[in-house]
């Protein structure tokens, strides 16, 4: 699905990612955990195509194509989805119009016909139910006046609508209460198939009780310093990040 090799990235001349290696296959769920400032959000931004970051070395192959060579919109059209940590409010653009445009541009890219209005509405209803998103929210402007939890649910709703091959969830659990967390996790679990994959970026182990990862990676100081199975997350939760920091700071220095 995606193969990240020796990825280095900087922002304003400061190196944040210092050689990331990660291989995600179809049907897998990977969790990336790490303390604040370790580069988690930078990694998701670089993969999604945010231009504030400069990739200084490395390569990312997504379904056989050079991901880093593509514009953000083409990455999305190829099947990459980023659930934003801080979803943007866009006053005046209705959620429905936004999703219809997105869906149709993706279809056009694939050489498909625009979706019929009837089918679009049916899809909208089905996916809304999945994340228990109020129909009224779907008709409002994108994220405008949404609560933190509603914004995150709207991200998962969008994901459900666009049906990506690889979804990166960037701290989707932050700011969610336990009920909202369950809804989000249930959405992801329902959408999971053998053909798609998820990268779940999180600070806390809590989300991983509901979205069970196949692999857990610990990102620290711009590198994946440890990989393991879901037990690694539990270990991290028990010991905290301090031990990781201590262990790897000594190696670095």
């Amino acid at each position: 699905m995606i193969s990240i090799k020796n990825l280095h990235a900087s922002v304003d001349g400061k190196e944040i990612l210092k050689g990331i290696n990660l291989e995600v296959k179809a049907g897998e769920v990977h969790a990336i955990m790490g303390p604040n400032g370790s580069g988690k959000s930078t990694l998701s931004s670089v993969l999604a195509g945010r231009t504030d970051y400069e990739v200084t070395a490395g390569e990312v192959i997504f379904n056989g194509k050079d991901l880093l060579d593509m514009e953000a919109e083409d990455r999305a059209r190829e099947g990459l989805f980023l659930a934003f940590q801080y979803p943007i409010e866009i006053p005046g653009v209705s959620n429905v119009n936004f999703l219809k445009t997105a869906l149709n541009e993706i279809r056009e890219y694939k050489g498909e016909e625009p979706i019929a209005a009837k089918d679009f509405l049916a899809l909208l209803k089905e996916k809304q139910k999945l994340v228990e998103l109020d129909g009224k929210l779907a008709n409002r402007s994108v994220n405008e006046g949404f609560s933190g939890g509603e914004k995150k649910r709207n991200e998962i709703f969008q994901m459900a609508m666009l049906n990506p091959k690889l979804a990166i969830l960037d701290e989707t659990d932050s700011g969610l209460d336990i009920d909202a967390l369950k809804i989000v996790a249930n959405g992801v679990n329902t959408l999971k198939t053998k053909e798609n994959a998820f990268i779940v970026i999180t600070h806390y182990q809590r989300l991983l009780d509901y979205i069970v990862p196949d692999f857990v990676h610990i990102l620290y100081n711009g590198k994946i310093v440890k990989s393991g199975t879901k037990e690694l997350a539990l270990e991290l939760e028990a010991k905290g990040y301090d031990e990781i920091k201590k262990q790897f700071e000594t190696i670095e220095s």
């Binding site: 195509g49 945010r50 231009t51 953000a72 989805f81 866009i90 936004f98 445009t101 997105a102 993706i106």
Partner: peptide, 21 residues
């Protein structure tokens, strides 16, 4: 960027934002 990240191209994203404005 948010619109681009959902597959909406540069030109139509710009149009959407200006129209909503």
């Amino acid at each position: 960027f948010y619109l681009n990240a959902r597959g909406i191209g540069k030109e139509s994203a710009k149009k959407m934002l200006l129209s909503s404005f």
